[in-house]
């Protein structure tokens, strides 16, 4: 089973303050902590599980800065075999179609059975790259996969997670791109031994020229959309904030609920 797994280095903004830079199209990321995108972490784990069950070989692909090497090595510490980090300022990273084209360019010409990606990046929420990548490669895809079974080494039975908790079960032949949903498995921790072995594995750094990708096809001019402006939306809360010590807050809330006939 020859696999590629695509991962993205994203900031954790769940509890951080987000500020837009003066350029109006980027945010101040100096105080963010970055790590692997959540869904991609599950994709890495799934690829390693498939490798463990079927034998195989996994190449990590990521577009990102030097600082993301630690994240990439972490995927290798968990069992991926080698990695290519693509670093090129010319890529229009805000457009997932351009990103898919770059990833496609990096895979093209190589044999593969599976490409795994996370189904969504937690920073920009597009849910687009994986499916677009399949089209770039001219292969099948299944998105939002919550369970995978490899049949006879030739086919994949994949369970897609739909709204409302329903799962759609489909079969497709290899090669295929799967976009992985969170919760599909329990991502492991990298053991120290794996971490050390990962340092010996190949991490190739490539720019567009190295990959034979024409920059004019993936840059901001090539993109059919423009990131015009970023802004912080006004969050309006009409909530009544209950103040006081925790006990007082609890008592106040209890009487609101009871007096209001809510309970």
């Amino acid at each position: 089973m020859k696999m590629f797994v695509c991962i993205k280095y994203v900031p954790d903004t769940s509890e951080a303050e987000v500020k837009v830079n003066p350029d109006g199209v980027s945010v101040d990321s100096s105080r963010f902590s970055f790590d692997i995108n959540d869904a991609d972490n599950y994709a890495v784990e799934e690829s390693v599980l498939i490798k463990e069950a079927n034998e195989g070989d996994i190449t990590v692909l990521s577009i990102g800065p030097k600082q993301s090497d630690v994240m990439i090595r972490m995927a290798m510490a968990k069992g991926c075999d080698r990695a290519v980090r693509i670093e090129d300022e010319r890529i229009a990273g805000y457009d997932p179609l351009m990103v898919a084209k770059v990833l496609g360019g990096a895979v093209k010409g190589q044999e593969f059975d599976l490409v795994l990606t996370g189904c969504m990046a937690s920073d920009d929420w597009h849910m687009t790259t994986g499916v677009a990548l399949a089209e770039e490669l001219g292969v099948n895809h299944v998105s939002m996969v919550k369970k995978v079974e490899i049949l006879d080494g030739k086919k994949v039975k994949a369970y897609r997670e739909l709204e409302g908790g329903l799962m759609e079960v489909v079969e497709v032949e290899l090669p295929v791109v799967l976009t992985i949903q969170t919760g599909i498995n329990e991502p492991r921790y990298a053991p120290i031994r794996g971490i050390r072995e990962a340092q010996k594995k190949e991490l190739k750094v490539a720019n567009l020229d190295d990959l034979g990708i024409d920059a004019a096809e993936v840059n901001a001019d090539a993109s059919l959309v423009v990131l015009e402006q970023l802004y912080i939306p006004q969050v309006e809360s009409s909530a009544e904030f209950i103040e006081g010590e925790p006990d007082v807050k609890a008592e106040k809330l209890a009487s609101i609920l009871v007096k209001g006939g809510l309970v």
Binding site: D69, V70, R73, M74, A77, Y189, A190, P191, I192, I195, R196, A198, Q199
Partner: peptide, 14 residues
């Protein structure tokens, strides 16, 4: 180095 940072992450996450 990278190994230190990775072990730091594994041990912290654990």
């Amino acid at each position: 180095d990278d190994v230190h940072l990775m072990i730091k992450k594994t041990s912290y996450d654990f």
